[in-house]
Amino acid sequence: MINKTIANAKEAVKDVFSNAVLMFGGFGLSGIPENCIKALLEKDLTGLTCVSNNAGVDDFGIGLMLKKRMVKKMISSYVGENAEFERQLLSGELEVELTPQGTLAERIRAGGAGIPAFFTPAGIGTEVAEGKEIREFDGKLYLMERWLKADFAFIKAWKGDTAGNLIYKGTARNFNPMMAAAGKITIAEVEELVPAGQLDPNQIHTPGIYVQRIFQGKDYEKRIEQRTVSEGRG
């Protein structure tokens, strides 16, 4: 079996270049590639386009890359938790392409699956539809959206094997599987890396064909944005 294993996050990001298009898995701070983001922060990069559902918070996740002025453009569905983001956006330093969440997920899926464009009802009658082709199918209006692909996709999984097969945990799966397929070079960091053959093929979420590099991550913080508890129940 092909071995995709590399030593660490530093090696994983060694050839990431300025002005590249990067994808980051995660929803909020759940399921984000913490190790790779840290390693990218050590590099001297500018002009990056980042595809990620959210933009992290001021002191964690992609928020740290914004703070270092590494990012030229964000393609996201919701960016509300980040004051530095707001400042850069209002001052014109940062460009943002807001995309409905389902459209974002499907654009990425389409990128990985070789579908250059598709029609969706999301955004009809709104500013999202401006400048886009609109067509009627069976009496309902739909707008055309294009695929998204990346030079590098950064994926966080729960378990992975040396062949690049991945298993996610809970809702930390989110955008990771589609992004894995949409990256020219896909880098997976996992909480537990095992030899090929130790994961049950029936349980694999992302087949190793999409993954070029895999490494065992460390020191996961897994920050929680809205710690919400119930009394007694649960």
Partner: peptide, 19 residues
């Protein structure tokens, strides 16, 4: 329901990012 303090899992959140 929302979890008790002992059952909080950062890998399990809703669309409002609540545990």
């Amino acid at each position: 329901p929302f979890p008790t303090e002992e059952k909080i899992d950062p890998d399990l959140i809703n669309a409002g990012k609540q545990t």
